[in-house]
Design a protein around this nucleic acid. Structure first.
Length: 587
DNA sequence: GCCGTTTTCGGCCCGACTGTTTTCAGTCG
């Protein structure tokens, strides 16, 4: 057995507190409830309350702690933007699973507010008028009225609005899903590069949730600086060749690409670029907090700059804005209003892991299982990325669909690895395997083979639908085995395809920490698993993380940057990432 | 309904674009 150790085993003698991280499902439910309340209040024209509910929803959605725990601890009102009134409604919902307040609102306004408001071009005011004049309560009513050309006759509405509504309804049925960062980023980069090449802009940058490296995004936000915005917009339209034009003006333009992706382009002047980039990177919550800081200092912050009275005092760069507000620069990935502003004010933004810190990749496949390239092709690519090591982790066991290896084939593979290693002495090739966790928590590999590996990645590929307790026990039992380095794609979700399995994530984190096993951030476009809120929670608990690509092709090794983005959203430093350090030989 | 190096009361992010107006309300991000 080649004894390579990857990081110093540590074992805390103090018992660490168990915080039930769960999968934060309830947080989303509560956020949805508050948002729905806000919608009804908005339509009934209640002043200021809607925004209060929306703010609270936004905060709860991004909490890394289960709302049930906060409630049980009697600390709901400690959550920013949650006061007495909203705390009571949350408590009632968590206790009874429903809200009397929402029920009352729905009784007073018996319409499907959520659905109607999700139609593009329809806001609270129009929904209310449609209900009052045509008794439109849901999408079916709306569609019928539009098709019968009844809407155009309402005062304040017209033919165009009616058509927009009809288009909005069809669009609604088609686009439910958010797109993975892995698919959206290359597309956005290509648009940006072409825009730059057109020479119609001085500079261009990707903004929005994409720049914040969010695992999934709703649309692409592009920002460009130009002295001739009109020509820049024209150039963009030629490049994007959109299927639909949602809006076009002097300074901005919104389109739907043939892929169904929405792209928003905004053009600003050169001296405004930093302020605009800051503004359009968001998040909304971060920006509102930042703007309030500006107001308190007697400034005004908008997408054109930071102003004292009417004089611009910053705005050319993002850095200049944060500086003038008395803060350290905040990396885009951290801008979620989760405490980063307070850290920046103290000047203690932690150094986040960078792509260039990554020394190797532990999760890769070759033609020995379901990969599409030879060992040497993968090694060459890894070398070109400047890696000092690469782990080959083809499937082992009985996983037919992945062409998993048996004992004979893995021995053949080791021979080939040894030969390739000789040809490529600069990069260390480590012999791993990805092993399926059986339904009962055993591993689909003989103990002797497991021991002879340099390391194993264990992961769930079968029997996704089992009870939470059963799944938790299955995974935790599997982690008891020796020679395991990584728990692969720990929640099993596939973006747009499959929900994560049910598991008590806190227990998984505890077991991983206890057995010195790293949790994976799998950078495959479809996986992005762990996602950043869970990765952040795991790291806060002292768990290590391994950022891997699960590459099945040489070029897929470049997915690493998506995983690094997620890790940065999780506030991970170099020390939290096991493959951001060199391999160490044991004795 | 929330919040406070202006405040326990009186504020609440703000600018672009669209469509329907004929100077602006509504929507969006």
């Amino acid at each position: 057995m080649l004894t390579t150790i990857f990081y110093k085993p540590y074992f805390s003698t103090t018992f660490f507190n168990s915080k039930n991280l769960g999968l934060l499902m309830k947080n989303q439910e509560v956020a949805d409830l508050l948002r729905e309340i806000a919608e009804y209040l908005e339509i009934t024209d209640v002043p200021f309350k809607p925004r209060a509910y929306q703010r609270a929803a936004l905060v709860i959605e991004t909490l890394a702690e289960p709302i049930e725990d906060i409630w049980k601890a009697g600390k709901l009102e400690d959550i920013p933007s949650v006061g007495e009134g909203i705390a009571k409604k949350i408590a009632e919902y968590l206790e009874k699973g429903k809200s009397a307040y929402l029920k009352k609102l729905k009784k007073e306004l018996p319409i499907d507010a959520d659905a109607l408001l999700s139609v593009g071009g329809l806001g609270p005011k129009k929904v209310k008028i449609l209900y009052k004049t045509l008794n439109i309560k849901n999408i079916e009513d709306l569609k019928k009225a539009a098709e019968q050309k009844k809407i155009r006759n309402i005062e304040g509405f017209g033919e165009k609005t009616e058509n927009t509504i009809l288009e909005g309804i069809t669009f609604l049925q088609k686009t439910e899903n958010r797109i993975s960062l892995g698919f959206a980023l290359p597309l956005a980069e290509s648009l940006k590069d072409q825009l730059l090449a057109s020479k119609r802009v001085h500079t261009a940058e990707i903004a929005g949730s994409l720049r914040r490296s969010k695992e999934t995004i709703g649309d692409i936000d592009l920002l460009a600086a130009s002295d001739n915005p009109k020509r820049a917009v024209e150039a963009f339209l030629t490049i994007a060749a959109p299927k639909a034009l949602l809006g076009k003006g002097e300074k901005k333009c919104s389109v739907i690409l043939t892929s169904g992706m929405q792209v928003d382009l905004r053009i600003v002047k050169r001296e405004e670029f930093g302020a605009a980039l800051q503004y359009f990177t968001g998040s909304k919550s971060h920006n509102i907090a930042l703007r309030n800081k500006a107001i308190k200092k007697g400034y005004k912050l908008n997408e054109y700059g930071l102003f004292k009275r009417n004089k611009r005092i910053a705005g050319g760069t993002e850095d200049s804005i944060y500086k003038k507000l008395g803060m350290a620069f905040i990396p885009p990935e951290m801008r979620e209003n989760l405490g980063e502003i307070q850290l920046a004010e103290k000047g203690s933004i932690p150094p986040l892991v960078k792509l260039k810190d990554i020394k190797g990749d532990f999760h890769t496949h070759t033609i020995y299982s379901d990969g599409r390239a030879s060992i040497e092709e993968m090694i060459k690519k890894a070398e070109s990325l400047g890696y000092s090591f690469i782990g080959i982790s083809d499937h082992f066991g009985h996983l037919r669909i992945a062409n998993a290896m048996d004992e004979q084939r893995i021995k053949k593979q080791w021979k080939e690895i040894n030969a390739v290693q000789k040809k490529h002495p600069k990069i260390k090739i480590v012999k791993g395997a990805e092993v399926n966790i059986n339904k009962d928590g055993s591993l689909d590999i003989p103990p002797a083979v497991l021991r002879s590996l340099d390391y194993a990645i264990i992961s769930v590929h079968t029997n996704f639908k089992m009870g939470k307790q059963e799944m938790t026990k299955r995974i935790c039992d599997a982690m008891e085995h020796e020679n395991i380095l990584v728990l692969g794609h720990p929640t099993g979700g596939m973006i747009g395809e499959r929900k994560p399995y049910e598991v008590d994530f806190d227990e998984v984190v505890l077991a991983a920490k206890q057995h010195n096993i790293a949790l994976e951030i799998n950078s495959q476009s479809k996986r992005m698993d762990l996602a950043s809120p869970l990765a952040k929670a795991a790291i806060e608990q002292g768990c290590r993380v391994s950022i891997n690509t699960d590459a099945h092709y040489p070029d897929s090794l470049e997915f690493m940057r998506f995983g690094v983005g997620i890790a940065r959203r999780a506030w991970a430093g170099k020390a939290d990432i096991i493959n951001a350090k060199e391999l160490k030989q044991k004795s």
